[in-house]
Nucleic acid binder design. Structure first.
Length: 216
DNA sequence: AAAACGATACACT
DNA sequence: GTGTATCGTTTTT
């Protein structure tokens, strides 16, 4: 069954763990791909320094300020699209980022869209990879994912056992609101990357010369 | 300049 | 087969 808008009309922190084991489906002229969600991340609104909505409404993030259950698809790092499901309650500008999943239908089409994937589990392992496997781009930004019979839907699937849900800090969130355990994943899923306590995203560490000895 | 990242090359098992 | 370091490219601040 299609999850209704009311499912998403709650804080992202409540929706995120409840999304594990659910299935997002996108049907297009090319065919249909379905992904069972295994890793997600919650972003609350204006209170959350890690959220795109933290500094207010912009053209990029305006979908976050709209109706729950629609998708916020944004462009990042100059080349990737990532997908979120807008949450609530109301128009609070909260959302859940879809970080990883397992392709459960349409793997052949997903492989065409993800030519660099070297194994089935890499098809939708990572937020931009998952988005590519589903065939979503900025053209889908704002689409309603709660309409039964629609091209884009989130199905109830088989929700993950509460005992298998793990959580930890989000990646790359610095400053005041850092290290809120708002990243959720299903334990033991091969599509979930190994837990990184603090992703070393800093290329040039000022306190260390050069690990490879190629400096200056 | 940093960011809600992925592809690649290369190391290790 | 799996893990890890490095770097590309655009939007937003």
């Amino acid at each position: 069954m299609t999850l209704p808008g009311s499912f998403f009309d709650r804080p992202a922190l409540a929706v995120a763990p409840d999304l594990l084991g659910r299935v997002i489906v996108h049907g297009s002229e090319e065919g249909l791909v379905a992904v069972r969600l295994t890793e997600v991340e919650a972003y609350e609104g204006a209170d959350d320094p890690g959220s795109h909505a933290f500094r207010g409404r912009t053209r990029r993030n305006e979908v976050m300020f709209g109706a729950p259950g629609h998708v916020y698809v944004y462009f990042t790092y100059g080349m990737h699209w990532c997908t979120n499901l807008v949450c609530g309650p109301g128009q609070r500008a909260a959302a859940v980022l879809l970080r990883a999943g397992e392709v459960v239908e349409g793997a052949e089409l997903a492989a065409v869209r993800r030519p660099t994937a070297r194994s089935a589990r890499e098809l939708a392992r990572g937020p931009a990879r998952l988005t590519a496997a589903l065939g979503l781009t900025g053209a889908h930004n704002g689409a309603d994912a709660c309409r039964p019979g629609g091209r884009l839907q989130v199905l109830d699937g088989v929700p993950c056992e509460a005992s298998a849900v793990r959580s930890g800090p989000r990646t790359g969130v610095g400053g005041g609101g850092a290290s809120r355990p708002w990243r959720f994943w299903a334990d033991g899923e091969p599509t979930v990357s190994v837990y990184r306590p603090h992703a070393p995203r800093n290329r040039a560490r000022p306190d260390q010369p050069d690990a490879r000895g190629l400096g200056a």
